[in-house]
């Protein structure tokens, strides 16, 4: 008996060690990024000490001074916000349509929505770019980043899953009260879905904030760049890649997400779990 208990102890300690090791691997890049951003350039490449010998905020100043970072921060922010707002509205609307109504072809249409998940963005990036440029004249505007992916399959699926759990009685009661359908959606459905909206909102915001390939294609001019594009522009040659500034920029572009993550992580975690299982 005592032997069994001791064996259990050993196993438990081993499990904690494995968890700690993997967690360390997960967190280390964040620490490394932060530490490197506080080092003068030569220290980054001497690699003698983990912590900076001469702590400095100079890299952050350089990042904002050398690049259009303030502008890019704003671009990233408003594009991500607008994308999230529009996307939430349209996905909730679509999810509501599929979850709370029976209409001919519903199953088929919904299956189609799910099937569209198999269209990888890279397969359409070239023609989409040509459209943006030649037909819409949307190059160097935020529209290509906001509109095309606003109503996406994942979001509709996600909202539908949540809305299935809304009791029909609430909606019917509103109908009997004479509320119009749009009013029911705005005044009854959306408030009830707040938790799901927050979860989906965070996912969409992160995806938009971090987007790279599409902004790289449709935002050629530096004044329209988002943060990832500014970071990438720092990479040489010609000239040396200023890893010190680059790391400071990386911190700037990651910090808002880390803070948001820590604040909303419960919502995000439960959202991702809810969005994936029931399928």
């Amino acid at each position: 008996m005592t032997f069994a208990v001791r064996r259990d102890h050993v196993a438990r300690i081993a499990v904690y060690l494995v968890l700690a090791a993997i967690s360390a691997f997960m967190v280390f890049p964040f620490v490394w990024m932060l530490v490197s951003s506080l080092k003068p350039f030569p220290e980054i490449f001497s690699g003698a000490h983990f912590l900076p010998e001469h702590w400095t905020l100079h890299n952050f100043a350089s990042f904002f001074h050398q690049t259009n970072a303030a502008r890019a921060l704003w671009n990233s922010f408003y594009i991500a916000t607008a994308t999230t707002a529009l996307s939430l509205f349209l996905c909730a609307l679509g999810g509501y349509g599929f979850a709370k109504f029976r209409f001919p072809g519903r199953t088929l249409l919904f299956a189609f929505v799910i099937a569209t998940l198999a269209v990888p963005f890279a397969a359409i990036v070239v023609p989409l770019f040509v459209m943006m440029r030649n037909t819409f004249h949307w190059v160097d505007t935020p529209w290509p980043l906001i509109v095309p992916s606003a109503a996406n399959a994942f979001g509709i699926f996600f909202m539908r899953q949540y809305m299935l759990s809304i009791p029909d009685e609430i909606l019917d009661a509103a109908r009997v009260d004479g509320a119009s359908e749009p009013r029911i959606f705005l005044r009854v459905v959306l408030p009830v879905c707040a938790p799901a909206l927050i979860s989906l909102g965070i996912i969409v915001f992160i995806a938009s904030w971090n987007g790279f390939l599409w902004p790289l294609v449709v935002l050629p001019s530096p004044q329209h760049w988002t943060l990832p594009l500014v970071l990438r522009s720092l990479q040489g040659p010609p000239g040396r890649t200023p890893y010190d500034v680059l790391m400071a920029g990386s911190v700037v572009s990651t910090l808002p997400l880390v803070i948001g993550f820590l604040v909303f992580q419960r919502r995000l975690v439960s959202g991702i779990m809810a969005g994936t299982v029931k399928g």
């Binding site: 040509v130 440029r133 030649n134 050629p220 040489g236 000239g239």
Partner: peptide, 22 residues
């Protein structure tokens, strides 16, 4: 003066060619 690294200059010029602007 707009400072752009060569690889980006080439990309921008090519993309500009499609629209005749930029």
């Amino acid at each position: 003066y707009v400072q752009i690294k060569p690889a980006d200059v080439y990309q921008k010029l090519q993309l500009g060619a499609a629209a005749g602007s930029g």
